[in-house]
Amino acid sequence: MESQADKLGVPRSWMRPLGTLLGAGALGLLTGFAVPVVGALAAAGLVLYFTGALWVHLRIGDYALGPWFVFLCLPAAALAVNLAYHGRA
């Protein structure tokens, strides 16, 4: 069975580091409830992560971007709410 990474041309050796970044971003969002600056940085990092994912999908001509859009909107909304509530750090 071909994995998503294989379809997108992402080397398998990148899967663990990319998964670690995604997990760290999720933990950073949770930490942001106690330390807002960490939450804002984590949300910004996840927005960059999913922007990179968009580039990879478009590079191979995969235009089924519904799931990508949902996953981008969540950290973007978290960043917007954090900055609106706490202001610029």
Results as ranks from 00 to 15, higher is better:
18 L>I: 14
54 L>T: 13
69 F>E: 02
65 L>G: 13
32 G>N: 06
52 G>Q: 09
33 F>A: 06
56 V>D: 07
58 L>C: 14
71 F>Y: 14
20 T>P: 00
32 G>A: 04
51 T>N: 10
14 W>L: 13
28 G>L: 01
52 G>P: 05
11 P>M: 06
19 G>Q: 09
77 A>I: 13
85 Y>L: 14
13 S>V: 00
20 T>W: 08
48 L>Q: 09
74 L>Y: 13
32 G>Y: 02
74 L>I: 15
59 R>N: 12
6 D>T: 07
31 T>D: 01
60 I>R: 15
42 A>K: 02
37 V>Q: 13
52 G>C: 09
36 P>G: 08
85 Y>T: 15
34 A>T: 05
35 V>P: 03
44 A>I: 00
19 G>I: 02
22 L>T: 02
8 L>M: 11
4 Q>S: 09
23 G>L: 12
16 R>C: 00
9 G>W: 01
3 S>E: 03
51 T>F: 10
45 G>M: 04
75 P>C: 09
49 Y>T: 02
41 L>P: 01
56 V>E: 07
73 C>Y: 07
89 A>T: 02
25 G>T: 08
39 G>R: 02
48 L>E: 06
20 T>E: 03
78 A>W: 03
24 A>Q: 04
51 T>I: 11
19 G>C: 00
64 A>E: 11
78 A>I: 10
32 G>V: 02
67 P>H: 12
54 L>Y: 12
13 S>D: 04
39 G>T: 05
31 T>F: 00
50 F>Q: 03
75 P>N: 08
48 L>I: 15
63 Y>W: 13
19 G>E: 05
64 A>F: 10
84 A>S: 15
56 V>Y: 04
63 Y>M: 07
77 A>W: 08
73 C>R: 05
58 L>A: 14
11 P>G: 06
27 L>Q: 02
30 L>R: 01
13 S>F: 01
34 A>N: 09
86 H>I: 04
47 V>H: 08
20 T>H: 04
84 A>C: 05
36 P>L: 03
73 C>S: 14
51 T>S: 15
81 V>G: 05
18 L>W: 11
36 P>S: 13
68 W>Y: 05
21 L>Y: 02
34 A>K: 08
9 G>D: 03
63 Y>H: 14
29 L>R: 07
53 A>Y: 05
41 L>F: 05
81 V>C: 10
12 R>F: 01
51 T>R: 01
5 A>F: 08
32 G>P: 02
57 H>K: 13
43 A>M: 02
53 A>E: 09
7 K>W: 05
5 A>S: 12
29 L>Q: 09
61 G>H: 10
46 L>P: 10
12 R>M: 07
17 P>K: 00
85 Y>C: 07
50 F>W: 15
70 V>F: 13
25 G>N: 06
88 R>I: 10
43 A>D: 00
62 D>R: 08
66 G>D: 03
26 A>I: 12
17 P>N: 02
51 T>Y: 10
19 G>Y: 05
53 A>T: 10
64 A>T: 07
56 V>I: 07
35 V>Y: 04
18 L>E: 12
14 W>D: 12
18 L>N: 10
40 A>E: 08
